[in-house]
Design a binder for these strands. Structure first.
Lengths: 110, 110
DNA sequence: ATTTTATATCGTAATATTGCAATATAAATA
DNA sequence: TATTTATATTGCAATATTACGATATAAAAT
């Protein structure tokens, strides 16, 4: 065991889990916040922003990219990273949906 | 190594990561969706909804509870679970914030 | 052409997660 | 009180994640 039983869940559930999992690490939250803060794509510079080694940061960037939360374009010497909106909108939609639903049907119990 | 270096990140970053991580598994997405679907607290019944054993489901419920995404009240024989709004609003806010920010500052590059 | 700069990949140790059988707990019911 | 029902905990094997040193790659600058 140890492996997630993805087969038994819907594609949508697996997709949302992948997106959420990608953000399930403070370094990856920090990367997203940094990309947002600078208000543009960042070419270089990300490694210096984080308290982690270059290989570790590179790995975190790869995971965010695989999940579809950021994208990276080669820009000469360095790589230009920015937030990938479609991925972000997908997971945002999930929370929006839950929140909207809860707002309507409050006060059942608990 | 192997342990996350939480010390080097802000409390907010760690908090968001814990919330996201809790949803980083399809079974836990499925639990949230189920709680939402039935539109009320669920006393019993969750185990039968998932393709996993009772101990495994119990563990997933515990993780969602620890993260602050659901709450469970003992209701006689069984336990009543429902979504915990404050936790949900916190992570929803993160995505909302990013989305709003992106909407304003589009078209920089990439 | 060599060196520098920016990033990725490999290998590997430490730790965490996933899943379940077995077992424990505790209230409800017979 | 004994049994059933609902859920939690323990223990453990399989797998995944985290982190980083060493090394690779590839464009830019010297």
């Amino acid at each position: 065991m140890g492996a997630t039983k993805t087969d038994h869940f819907t594609e949508s559930q697996n997709e949302l889990a992948v997106l959420a999992k990608a953000l399930g690490h403070p370094a990856r939250i920090a990367i997203m916040e940094y990309l947002l803060k600078v208000d543009a794509c960042i070419c270089g510079d990300i490694v210096n922003e984080l308290p982690l080694s270059q290989p570790t940061v590179s790995q975190h960037l790869k995971e965010l990219k695989n999940a579809g939360l950021i994208k990276g374009n080669i820009e000469g010497n360095s790589i230009c990273y920015c937030i990938n909106e479609p991925g972000l909108e997908k997971i945002k939609g999930f929370f929006q949906h839950i929140s909207d639903h809860l707002a309507k049907k409050r006060s059942e119990c608990c």
